[in-house]
């Protein structure tokens, strides 16, 4: 009897906690969307900002955000996946891998402003790239690398040894085994890493301001400064420019992240069903 009450109490309390988490998340999302979605209209989506963003839309900001994020992910993904493959497949028994992996983990936890400072000092000033998509994208790429490496490594580790053995026993080379068996079977994990990276990059504010600047005009080259939605959001709110546009920007940011996540999930599950 007492066991049953304990069970019930435990079930009840974790249920309540889960409910609280859900409620707080949903109310944050709901509050922002409720205040913002009404202000998203065709003009907001397709026109460039006027008078510091008080008027007009945020088209150039949306484009800047997408380009900067895409650029950083395109740079970080091949490097991150390659590094993870090197760590798990090619460095067995090598002593220096331990420290490198340790530093990678530390990097994943370092505040983004540190990366911003580095990007500012190195890309913007030292390499003379100025405030630009290039500087910002490279900085963000470095910032999301640890996450990407970790996620890829974790998924590589879940690939059973028997797949490797099966492939090698058929006379495949190690490279063929990696590209034809190992990577395909951990693609969902790599994709998760990319999504986490996108999430981190798209939401980044401080490091982006320091490296990509906050130019409101439509960027025409990678050397142009641009403003991302997070930076725009921060500027609108902190300078009290327009509350309506702030909420609209925030809502759109949430929607874009939702779309990216849903799309990635759809790709993953489609891929899993296929294999």
């Amino acid at each position: 009897m007492i066991k049953k009450i304990k069970q019930g109490a435990f079930y009840g309390s974790i249920g309540l906690l889960a409910f609280l988490v859900m409620i707080s998340l949903l109310s944050i999302m709901g509050y922002i969307l409720f205040n913002g979605v009404g202000h998203i209209n065709l003009e907001f989506l397709t026109k460039e900002p006027r008078s510091m963003g008080r008027e007009g839309g945020i088209f150039s900001v949306i484009i800047g955000t997408l380009i900067l994020t895409l650029f950083s992910v395109l740079i970080a993904t091949p490097i991150g996946v390659a590094a993870a493959i090197f760590f798990t497949e090619y460095s067995a028994g090598k002593k220096w891998v331990g420290p490198i992996r340790f530093f990678t983990e530390i990097l994943a936890g370092i505040p983004s402003i540190i990366f911003g400072l580095f990007g500012f000092a190195f890309f913007v000033i030292f390499l003379g790239l100025g405030w630009s998509i290039l500087s910002g994208g490279l900085t963000l790429a470095i910032m999301i690398l640890p996450t990407l490496i970790r996620a890829t490594e974790e998924s590589l580790k879940t690939v059973p040894m028997s797949y490797r053995e099966g492939s090698l026993s058929l006379g495949a080379t190690k490279l063929q085994t990696i590209t034809r068996v190992i990577i395909p079977s951990c693609l969902p994990g790599i994709l998760t890493g990319i999504i986490l990276g996108v999430g981190r990059a798209i939401g980044e504010t401080a490091a982006v301001m320091l490296t990509a600047g906050s130019n409101l005009r439509m960027p025409t080259s990678l050397l142009d400064s641009t403003r991302t939605m997070s930076v725009h959001l921060y500027t609108l709110a902190s300078e009290g420019i327009s509350l309506e546009k702030t909420f609209a920007t925030a809502s759109l940011l949430i929607i874009i992240v939702l779309i990216i996540n849903t799309a990635a999930n759809a790709i993953t599950s489609k891929y899993i069903i296929k294999s």
Partner: peptide
């Protein structure tokens, strides 16, 4: 590589790749 091409192996636990039947054979 050539050795393993000539000397195939079947393992204790069946280890087909997570691919189709066709793709497994033609691997």
């Amino acid at each position: 590589i050539n050795l393993r091409k000539k000397v195939g192996m079947v393992f204790q636990k069946p280890n087909p790749f997570p691919k189709t039947i066709f793709e497994n054979i033609v691997y």
